[in-house]
């Protein structure tokens, strides 16, 4: 990706730098995080931390208010109280309280239902927007999508970049769309910008799109919609983390990271946390700066937490399946 000049609102230009990324080296480094062995106390900590970072997501054509209601319940109280009691009785001591997840993430048409259940709680309400997942709608409709979502109570917007414009080299359009969405979000909502790494494919493009999005005002950058053939991987997340690091060094602004899609197990989640810890550092290890876009991950985290306490494995039926 050659460097590109971008016009910014209010006049002036910025440069999105040329920053090549080597795929093999990146993959090697990413794989090195899977070799970390996180045990005992630090494992329990990591499991709790990961749980608090989950954007519990349902993005299906079949989503209904009933489904969303159940999901919100699970988000607020991931572990059934009866189960907690039973475990505490078995091990003869209190377990650390299980936190709520970070957010619930839904389609725009389910915001109203989710808002009803989440309003006044610590759980954020994230809505995908801008014609998620493809982004293939005219710009005005995409902005309308965002305005409506915020009006209905979304506190976080997960937008997609315009891959049509990006892949034909029209970076100004990509940039302008993010800026426009950010304008609407203002300080009403957090903006997560989805690059859809599976469609960009090369790490050079992922790196470039990360920088472009951050320059345009992204609060978070996010790997993928979960709808592409390849979603979050340790390697593409690493490329984005390194972009965040450099952006912070250069601009002095922290940007959050959200890998999404394909993170299904506690083991994977811990690998991501290890990677964040050993690249961006502890400052980013909070739900404010790091999220997992996931659904089945939550139950695996719960199972692993209970395993840490009891030494036994549980199957999903001991938790609620939503």
């Amino acid at each position: 990706m050659p460097a590109a000049q971008i016009k910014v609102p209010g006049g002036g230009r910025i440069t999105i730098p040329h920053y090549p990324v080597d795929r093999v080296g990146t993959t090697e480094r990413a794989n090195s995080f899977t070799k970390r062995s996180i045990k005992t106390e630090s494992k329990l900590d990591a499991l709790y931390l990961a749980l608090s970072m989950v954007d519990l997501t349902t993005l299906e054509g079949s989503d209904t208010p009933g489904k969303v209601r159940q999901l919100c319940g699970k988000a607020l109280r991931p572990m059934p109280p009866a189960m907690v009691e039973q475990i505490e009785k078995e091990i003869g001591k209190k377990i650390r309280p299980i936190p709520s997840v970070a957010a619930v993430c839904v389609y725009p048409s389910q915001i109203a239902t989710a808002a009803k259940h989440l309003r006044g709680t610590s759980v954020e309400l994230a809505s995908v927007a801008t014609a998620f997942p493809s982004g293939q709608l005219p710009a005005d409709l995409k902005l309308e999508d965002v305005k409506r979502a915020i009006k209905l109570g979304a506190t976080e917007i997960d937008m997609v970049i315009n891959r049509d414009a990006f892949l034909r080299g029209d970076f100004q359009t990509v940039f302008d769309e993010v800026v426009a969405v950010k304008d609407i979000c203002s300080d009403e909502a957090h903006l997560k910008v989805i690059l859809e790494t599976g469609e960009l494919q090369t790490y050079d493009k992922i790196r470039f799109a990360s920088w472009l999005s951050m320059e345009a005002g992204a609060d978070f950058i996010k790997t993928s919609t979960g709808k592409a053939t390849e979603n979050a991987t340790l390697a593409n997340t690493l490329v984005m983390l390194q972009a965040i690091q450099d952006f912070y060094d250069d601009r002095g602004r922290m940007v959050g990271m959200k890998p999404a899609g394909g993170i299904r197990t506690a083991k994977q989640a811990i690998q991501y946390l290890v990677m964040v810890k050993e690249t961006l550092g502890n400052e980013w290890l909070t739900p404010q700066w790091f999220r997992f876009g996931a659904s089945v991950l939550l139950n695996d985290l719960l199972r692993q937490i209970m395993k840490q306490y009891t030494g036994r494995y549980f199957d999903n039926h001991y938790f609620s399946l939503d």
Partner: peptide
């Protein structure tokens, strides 16, 4: 360099009722 896009944004501050408590980390 410029434009509003570079400004740090702050999330909406809301009153939050903690459910189940928050993450406790061990030293």
């Amino acid at each position: 360099m410029g434009g509003r896009a570079l400004e740090t944004s702050t999330a909406k501050k809301k009153t939050k009722i903690p459910q189940n408590g928050t993450v406790v980390e061990t030293k």
